[in-house]
């Protein structure tokens, strides 16, 4: 019995639970499969067709993604002779692992969290900037012209969207007067959701995340008709599947930050008290955060059905010429809100 209890304790040990089970690896895998499936379904509905359907039509083709995953897992991983092997192999794996790391500091409930730190917003924002560097590395190591072009495009984009995202996050922490997600959520519960307090910041963040996770119309670094698959042209098998998953994992992480900063974190479900520790501190608040994040992610994948892709200079022009200014405006707006709160 003691072993079982120790096991349960181990599983519920917040760092492990957060990174491996929820909202970490296992949940992200499920989330990714759901999201890719719904992306294809959404696109299919808009595009006069069904989307995945052949595998289990009654489940609307949902097992299709399982099948894809199995196919990727069993396919031979081809490592071309001309690539730089070590970075080539490490880059997507490390990118995926690091992409999930911000989850360690993003709380899903007010009481059950792995790391309590004053600077959790700062740490999360810092960690989200690392995976794109590894994507550049992957393209560089691939020794392929298209990969190089993809990497170059990615590096141009990073400079744009990372600054916008960081500025917006700064404006929100300015608004809440804290660098801690917990306090930010508390502030929202006390006052109003961030999206109402500072809508400009919310929209800017949303667009910058679309840019950062190569959603349409910013799917520039992997533009198929131009540079085949961008930095991942040379990848195959499970490595390719992993590489494909990175942008979705990053989108999930970004959207959790979005939920915590703008959508009131775990309110409304987090406030319910049933007496059961697991239900109260993990499932209910966790579910409300996750559901909100999924809805935001669905909005992001929906744009695939409406837009083509921008050219890199248009995206940069839009990023620096419009959204960067909007990010600065959002800081101003935060200042105004803080001032107003002081006055009244």
């Amino acid at each position: 019995m003691a072993i079982v209890e120790r096991l349960i304790d181990l599983i519920l040990w917040p760092p492990l639970f957060y990174y491996i089970i929820f909202p970490g690896l296992i949940f992200v895998m499920i989330f990714e499969m759901f999201l890719i499936w719904s992306e294809r379904k959404i696109a299919g509905r808009v595009q006069m067709r069904y989307g995945p359907l052949e595998i289990a039509p009654r489940l609307a083709g949902a097992p299709q993604l399982m099948a894809d995953l199995i196919r990727y897992a069993l396919q031979e991983v081809i490592i071309p002779r001309t690539v730089d092997k070590l970075p080539f192999v490490i880059a997507p794996i490390a990118a995926f692992v690091i992409a999930l790391m911000p989850l360690l500091v993003t709380p899903f409930s007010p009481t059950f969290l792995p790391v309590t730190t004053e600077g959790s917003i700062l740490i999360a924002a810092a960690l989200t900037t690392i995976p794109p560097l590894l994507l550049i590395l992957a393209g560089w190591a691939s020794n392929n012209k298209f990969s190089l072009v993809g990497s170059a495009r990615e590096s141009f984009l990073i400079a744009t969207y990372e600054i916008i995202i960081l500025l917006v996050i700064a404006s929100m922490s300015f608004l809440y007067g804290t660098l801690d997600f917990l306090k930010a959520v508390e502030a929202q519960q006390a006052l109003l959701w961030g999206i109402i307090l500072n809508p400009i910041a919310a929209i800017t963040y949303f667009v910058a995340v679309m840019m950062g996770t190569s959603r349409f119309p910013f799917e520039i670094a992997e533009a198929e008709s131009e540079i085949v698959m961008g930095a991942f042209t040379e990848y195959s098998g499970i490595m390719f599947g992993l590489a494909m998953g990175i942008s979705y994992a990053r989108m999930f992480v970004y959207n959790i930050i979005f939920v915590l900063l703008f959508l009131g974190g775990w309110s409304p479900l987090g406030g319910i008290v049933t007496g059961n520790y697991i239900l109260d501190s993990i499932i209910l608040p966790g579910a409300s955060v996750a559901i909100k994040a999924v809805i935001i992610s669905l909005l992001m994948v929906f744009t695939r059905a409406v837009y083509g892709r921008y050219r890199i200079d248009h995206a940069l022009k839009g990023g620096w010429g419009f959204w960067f200014i909007m990010a600065l405006v959002s800081i101003g707006l935060s200042a105004a809100v803080v001032y107003l709160m002081e006055v009244f």
Partner: peptide, 16 residues
């Protein structure tokens, strides 16, 4: 043309 520009919906609509 549409799919070259990445616009998959118009590709499907034109072909449909």
């Amino acid at each position: 043309f549409a799919i070259l520009l990445g616009h998959s919906t118009m590709y499907m609509w034109f072909f449909g």
